[in-house]
């Protein structure tokens, strides 16, 4: 579904990515791991069009989308959940969900059945929700655009362990429905059984990729590449 090849990008004159290659297939959960500052967020930002790549290609179902404006990329089927959540604070829960919605499988009703907590908060302003609720809201907001690929940056950072596992179980449900998910999450190892493939980033390139089993068995790898 998503193919990233030879991606180079950076901020102004400061290069961050030096040729990133990765693949996400439909119905797969893929994680992007690595220490801070290795280029994970930048990679996701380039894929979703917030930053323009300097070289390389991003293809969605064979269509080259790199260099497109972010709203076109979103329309092409990529839902992006940013790391600092960014709900629209002055809109209430329902408004946050429907403002950018596009027709498709996901409706208010379906989002509320995925996150029952949000259903009880419908008229509350987005800015007044707890961190966990905000994260559910932004995931719901991205789903309401009916994407084929959902990208989450720091999916569960700063959330309580219970909320964290709830978010991951939702990702599992989405996977079962055939949605592709690309996720950056420090706590991904707690849910390795859901993940199809891991990519580890180091200094702006993918330094390792493999299955959950391979990642779990390599104590050295985890120690070297993932510890902060």
């Amino acid at each position: 579904m998503l193919t990233v090849s030879g991606l180079k990008a950076g901020y102004d004159e400061f290069p961050v990515l030096f040729g990133v290659d990765l693949k996400v297939g439909s119905g797969e959960i893929i994680t992007l791991l690595g220490r801070n500052g290795m280029g994970k967020t930048t990679t996701l930002r380039v894929i979703s069009g917030i930053i323009k790549p300097k070289e390389g290609k991003v293809c969605l179902d064979g269509l080259v989308i790199s260099g497109w404006r972010s709203y076109r990329i979103a329309k092409a089927g990529i839902g992006f959940v940013p790391e600092d959540r960014q709900v629209f604070p002055s809109l209430n829960v329902v408004e946050n969900l429907i403002a950018t919605a596009r027709p498709g499988y996901w409706t208010l009703h379906k989002v509320f059945s995925l996150f029952p907590l949000l259903a009880d908060r419908q008229t509350i302003q987005g800015g007044l929700l707890s961190g966990g609720e905000q994260q559910m809201l932004v995931i719901g907001r991205a789903l309401m655009t009916n994407p084929r690929l959902l990208i989450l940056d720091e999916a569960t950072e700063g959330l309580a362990p219970m909320v964290r596992s709830e978010i991951w179980s939702c990702l599992g449900k989405l996977k079962d429905m055939g949605m592709a998910v690309l996720v950056v999450d420090k706590y991904a190892s707690a849910s390795v059984e859901l993940v199809d493939r891991h990519y580890i980033m180091e200094k702006g390139v993918i330094s390792w990729s493999g299955s959950s089993a391979e990642l779990s068995s390599s104590v050295m790898l985890r120690g070297q590449l993932l510890s902060v």
Binding site: I50, S70, Y71, A74, G79, T100, A142, T145
Partner: peptide, 10 residues
């Protein structure tokens, strides 16, 4: 920026 990333030509 967020709206654009959600597919709205602001």
């Amino acid at each position: 920026t967020r709206l654009q990333a959600l597919g709205v030509s602001t």
